[in-house]
Each structure stands twice: as structure tokens, then as C-alpha cells.
Write a protein that binds this DNA or RNA. Structure first.
Length: 222
DNA sequence: CACCAGGCAAGTA
DNA sequence: TACTTGCATGGT
């Protein structure tokens, strides 16, 4: 059984409703969270962000004023804290030195150009850049993550060997360029991935259970 | 105890 | 270009 991007979206939205992503309260929080969540559970990231919030450090210049060692200590619960402290600093240096610490100024840059600028920062890869653009900036750049890949590959809608940009193009070329839609779609994919499509799949009760690939069985060789 | 979680960059051949 | 490895905490 084959399904269109729109049909999959409608299934997920009917089952789960709006997800209200990103789970951060301000654009700057989203920015920080996008780095901290790299290969890490959101529960751990929340602890790190709460450490910053407790000390009123959820704004660019305040974080940039910290030493790397101080920042490492605050974000320790998020894991990889040494490398992430440097990655955050790289991002903050870019934001402060190039845009005066203003997210509004940064997001005034045209999407393709800003995306290129973000990717030049050491520690910002495709997914982190797209998360910042879409969820902090409200710009229509589709986010591909491990769940996006797993859910779509297991149903045979993309190959397991599809790379980041093949998957991104699959969504961006098949949907209207609408940030609200990209936002909701990705959030719904994470939702269904968490509930049904982890390493050990639980297809019982999954909204996509009747959209299994031809041959019936879910492929799990990822 | 082992395994997993919303990546990325650096090193190797 | 195409692999492989290091990075680290906290939950199950």
C-alpha cells in the first residue's frame, strides 16, 4: 500500500492533533536546545536549559559572557557537555558578532543564505541548522531527523540508504513551502516515532499500521 | 548489566 | 568518496 505525503500527514494529525513544537518557550531557547539535543534525549536537555533559566541565562549576551568552563558546568546534564559548550559558543559568537545578538536581525536574512551561514559554524550540521531555521525562525526549511528517516524507510517510502538531502527534498518538493506545515509534520513524525517506531517497533495501534509496505512486514534493518 | 536518545566533526584508507 | 570513532549524561 502506498500513500502520499499529504495522506500520511492527515493520518497523523487526525490521530494526534497539533503538537505545539518546538517544546521551548522562546526563539533563543529553541536555538540553544537545537544544539543540546544532538543525539540526546530531550529530558536531559530540559535539565540543562533549566540550569540556564535558573540563573537568568536565557539570552545571547549572558550566555556568551560565560567562560567555556562555566558553560560546561551548566549544560552537563545534556551530555557531550565539553563539545556542546564549544558548539554553543561558536553559535553565540556568530549571533553576537554578526547580528549584534539579535535573533530578529539574524532571521531577517534570506533563508538559503542564512542556512549556508549556519552550516559554516563548527558544530552546526544540517539538522541543527534546519531546526533553528524552522522552529526558532519560523522559516520553511524541513527538518530531517532519525525518526523521519526510520518511519519513512520502514514503510518503504524512502530507502534506508537515503541521505539527509534526499529525504529533505522528498518532503520539500512534495509539500507547499509552509513553515507551519513543516513544523507540524516533523513534530508528528517524532510523536509517532517515539510511540511506535523505536528500535523495537510497536505497530499495534499505530496510526500508520495499515500503510505497511507491499509484502506486509515492516522493514527494520536500519 | 546493556542499550538507547530529535548529530556532528575528525580521522583513516 | 566512504567508512569508523569519540563525545557523556540519565532513563529503562
Amino acid at each position: 500500500m502506498t500513500a502520499t505525503l499529504g495522506e500520511v500527514y492527515d493520518r497523523l494529525f487526525a490521530a494526534y492533533g497539533p503538537q505545539h513544537w518546538w517544546p521551548g518557550q522562546s526563539p533563543f531557547e529553541v536555538l540553544i536546545g537545537a544544539v543540546l539535543v544532538q543525539n540526546t534525549s530531550w529530558e536531559n536537555v530540559k535539565k540543562a536549559i533549566d540550569n540556564l533559566r535558573r540563573e537568568n541565562l536565557l539570552e545571547p549576551r549572558a550566555v556568551y559572557a560565560l567562560s567555556v568552563e562555566e558553560l560546561e558546568e551548566k549544560i552537563r546534564p545534556a551530555g557531550y557537555f565539553r563539545i556542546k559548550a564549544r558548539r554553543l559558543r561558536n553559535l553565540l559568537a556568530f549571533l553576537v558578532e554578526r547580528y549584534g545578538g539579535s535573533l530578529d536581525a539574524m532571521f531577517r536574512t534570506a533563508l538559503p543564505e542564512l542556512r549556508e551561514q549556519l552550516l559554516e559554524i563548527n558544530g552546526i550540521g544540517p539538522e541543527t541548522a534546519d531546526s533553528i531555521l524552522l522552529y526558532a525562525g519560523g522559516l520553511p526549511s524541513f527538518v530531517v531527523d532519525a525518526y523521519t528517516h526510520r518511519v519513512f524507510a520502514r514503510h518503504g517510502w524512502i530507502g534506508f540508504d537515503a541521505d539527509y538531502y534526499q529525504i529533505k527534498d522528498h518532503f520539500e518538493s512534495g509539500l507547499p513551502q509552509d513553515a507551519r506545515l513543516f513544523n507540524e509534520y516533523h513534530a508528528l513524525l517524532v510523536r509517532v516515532g517515539k510511540e511506535h517506531c523505536r528500535k523495537t517497533p510497536r505497530c499495534q495501534g499505530c496510526p500508520l499500521a495499515d500503510l505497511l509496505p507491499p509484502g506486509g512486514a515492516l522493514r527494520t534493518d536500519d
